[in-house]
């Protein structure tokens, strides 16, 4: 049985490249058939905003890759509902990904507890 991993996105995009570099780890873990949960909490929910245009800053837009997560068999995608409320965001502001699950902190807590590895960046 392969080891499972939670990838926790907790930083907003473009001020740092943490989101993009964490995404690369997620895709690589998927290639190794590790069961993966992508978690968006805190300012990490800004990674999923649907109207990102970093090209005006000459920064590469990595948000399209989040839409492709299910294609890489990353179908467990948890979004922290408290974080959305905290930043006055709604589900309509986020990328249209059918697999997004809007969950409480307790759901994230138990997923983290049951994973073999948890990474933030």
């Amino acid at each position: 049985m392969s080891k499972s991993i939670c990838i926790v996105f907790n930083k907003a995009p473009y001020g740092s490249q943490a989101g993009r570099e964490l995404l690369d780890i997620a895709l690589m873990a998927a290639a190794f058939d590790m069961p993966i949960t992508a978690i968006f909490t805190g300012q990490g929910v800004y990674q999923l905003i649907n109207n990102q245009q970093p090209d005006i800053l000459n920064i590469k837009n990595h948000s399209a890759t989040f839409k492709a997560l299910p294609l890489y068999d990353i179908e467990q995608i948890l979004v922290d509902q408290n974080a959305l409320h905290q930043f006055n965001l709604s589900q309509n502001d986020l990328l249209g990904i059918d697999e997004l699950q809007y969950v409480s902190a307790d759901v994230i807590k138990s997923r983290i507890a049951n994973s073999d590895f948890v990474l933030t960046l």
């Binding site: 909490t41 408290n82 902190a105 507890a113």
Partner: peptide, 11 residues
């Protein structure tokens, strides 16, 4: 404070 909601009492 950011991590605290996910930390259990036995963690």
């Amino acid at each position: 404070s950011e991590a605290l909601p996910f930390i259990g009492e036995n963690d």
